[in-house]
Amino acid sequence: MQNKQVANASAPGKAFGSDNIAGVSPAILDALVACNADPTTPYGADALTASVEQQFCELFERDVSVFLVPTGTAANSLCLSVMSPPWGSIFCHPSSHINTDECGAPKFFTNGAKLLAIDGLAAKIDVEKLAKASRLKRGDVHATQPHAVSITQATEMGSVYAVDEIQAISKVCKDADMRLHMDGSRFANALVSLACTPAEMTWKAGVGALSFGATKNGVMGAEAIILFDQDLAREMAYRRKRAGHLFSKMRFLSAQMNAYRQNNLWINNARHANQMGQRLAQGLRQISSVELLGESPSNIIFCRLPQAMTAALLKEGYAYLHDRWEPGVARFVTRFSTSIAEVDQLITSMQHIHAQQQGEFA
């Protein structure tokens, strides 16, 4: 299954493979239907798109430049394309999505910029290692030159950068004359867990460009590039068009993002997904044969399972990522539509499997 080891089609209520397997929030679907009624100016020159842009300015408490695109890969890669020249290097964590799951798109969109991995605990870049790497081969024409750092919020392990951690990375960027990008594919999940404002988690902490994710949190297919460094905006407009991501019928992206922000839908969806993740983690802690791998305040839970438990769960129809990182390591992701009953059913199944297997070895 495209090199992602997931069980085949899961039984109803047994899907924990990712948050993007969920459907679409009803309010988003209603908004798409509503914006379909009348003809509208294309390419983002419509009133709804203008309204969404203004909403983002209000959300982030300052003027920002907004560019809607349909995918997170486009958002990340376009951001990086205006933050680094082809001879530049972009620092990121080894497990970051831009490094492992975007098929070389950042390098393609930047026309050759190099991704350099900086390791760190809990899938977060180690600040001291970053500072050291940012000083290497400065001015050496034989080496790519440091131009940007990309952090993932929340990370692929479910961990979250605290505001002071973002500030520390930002200081390294400032000292080394680099720009800071945030891959916010799970931006709302991180925001809810930190209980801070969007401004505090981004530009006030030194972030210059943000990929504001929505698809994983109830939207059909819309992401927003948010530029706090507005010197990048003019080039972004041309790069989005050249890359084929300037939608003619932009109102359909804007309608999704507008509905996503209305009535706190984005926060409520993320809060629920996080709560289901914490409920699952709490249940797993009670099973002695399951080892939680790190603390996650979001909706992504990593653990180590006995191979026999993995086999039994797959046989029961559960779908989740497993054995992709190393044998026995599993990832469960809860989503905005995950119910308490689904989580409790999974925990109960694992408890029963554990009891059966303990009986076999008694």
Rank of each mutant, 00 (worst) to 15 (best):
F60M: 12
Q256I: 04
M220L: 15
D19K: 02
S296N: 07
K14N: 10
N111L: 11
K315I: 03
E316R: 15
I225Y: 01
G221D: 08
Q282H: 05
G44S: 07
L136Q: 13
P26N: 10
Q262H: 11
P146W: 11
D38F: 12
Y238A: 15
D183I: 04
L194W: 05
P198V: 08
A243C: 09
W87F: 12
R324M: 14
K14W: 03
I21K: 09
F228G: 06
D63P: 09
F67T: 01
Y238P: 00
R239F: 10
M83G: 04
E326C: 13
S248W: 13
P106S: 02
T202R: 01
L284C: 03
Y318D: 01
G44V: 06
T41S: 08
I340M: 07
G23T: 13
C79F: 05
K129R: 15
T310W: 02
A133V: 09
A22V: 05
K14D: 09
C303W: 07
S337F: 07
V82N: 01
L180D: 11
Q167I: 09
E156S: 10
G139M: 11
F332V: 03
G88Q: 05
G44I: 06
T41D: 09
R271W: 01
D175Q: 11
F302S: 04
V141H: 11
E235W: 01
I90H: 07
D183S: 05
I166L: 12
A9S: 15
S339T: 13
F108W: 12
Y43G: 08
N269Y: 09
S248E: 15
I21E: 13
V333I: 06
R62D: 00
K315Q: 15
T110K: 03
E200W: 03
E53G: 12
S18R: 06
H93Y: 00
D229M: 03
M236G: 05
E128S: 12
K124F: 05
F212Y: 15
H181S: 08
R234K: 15
R62H: 05
D323W: 14
H181R: 03
H352G: 01
A209D: 05
I287Q: 03
T338S: 15
S25I: 12
R239M: 10
Q262N: 15
C57W: 04
M236L: 04
A50L: 12
A113P: 02
E200F: 01
G23S: 12
L136A: 14
K216P: 01
A50D: 14
L293N: 02
